[in-house]
Simulated scan of single mutants.
Amino acid sequence: MATKGLIQREKKRQKLERKYHLIRRSLKKQICEVPSLSDKWKIHGKLQSSPRNSAPTRLRRRCFSTGRPRANYRDFGLSRHILPEMVHACLFPGATRSSW
């Protein structure tokens, strides 16, 4: 189980990403449209001045129940450890356990 501090840090990053999403997108669009290189550098400086944790690449997908950062299924939002347990407990209708 992930520590609570790591989970809170990830929530803070998500909040910052939502806050700066439109600003970052508009600045990137302006960089593509401006023909002169000096103007591109000025816009790039504005983009660099935004908080580092506001970048979407800094986000990490975590398991909803345990907070595990690795081996997550996007469809369910659960890690590989929790998913079979929940399927076995019949919490996902239509999902079956594989057995050979």
Rank of each mutant, 00 (worst) to 15 (best):
N53M: 05
G77E: 09
R25W: 01
Y20D: 00
S36E: 11
S50F: 06
L59P: 01
R18T: 12
I31S: 02
Q48V: 15
K42A: 07
F64D: 15
R24T: 02
R18C: 05
C63V: 06
L37N: 09
F64W: 06
C32P: 03
Y73M: 08
S65E: 15
Q30V: 10
H44L: 10
Q48Y: 07
T66D: 10
G77W: 03
T66I: 10
N72V: 12
K42H: 15
D75T: 07
C32K: 14
R25F: 00
R18V: 07
W41I: 01
N53T: 04
C32G: 10
K29M: 04
K19S: 02
D39N: 11
S54C: 07
P51L: 04
D39C: 04
R25C: 02
Q48I: 13
V34N: 05
C63R: 01
A55G: 14
Q48A: 10
Q48L: 14
G77M: 06
R62H: 15
R18K: 13
K46E: 13
P51I: 04
N72Q: 03
G77I: 05
A55S: 12
Y73T: 14
T57W: 09
W41T: 00
P69W: 11
P69V: 11
F76K: 14
Y73D: 10
R58F: 02
K28C: 00
V34K: 05
N53G: 07
Q48F: 07
S26C: 01
S65R: 14
R60D: 03
L37S: 14
K40I: 01
R61I: 07
G67Y: 12
A71P: 07
R62N: 05
R61E: 06
E33S: 09
K40R: 13
P35N: 12
Y20N: 04
F76S: 10
L37G: 12
I31G: 06
I31N: 02
L22A: 11
S38I: 03
S65I: 14
W41N: 12
R74H: 15
R58P: 05
K19C: 06
L27M: 04
K28G: 02
L59T: 04
R58C: 12
G45V: 03
G67I: 04
R68P: 09
R61H: 08
N53I: 03
Q30W: 04
C32H: 14
F76A: 10
L37P: 15
A55I: 03
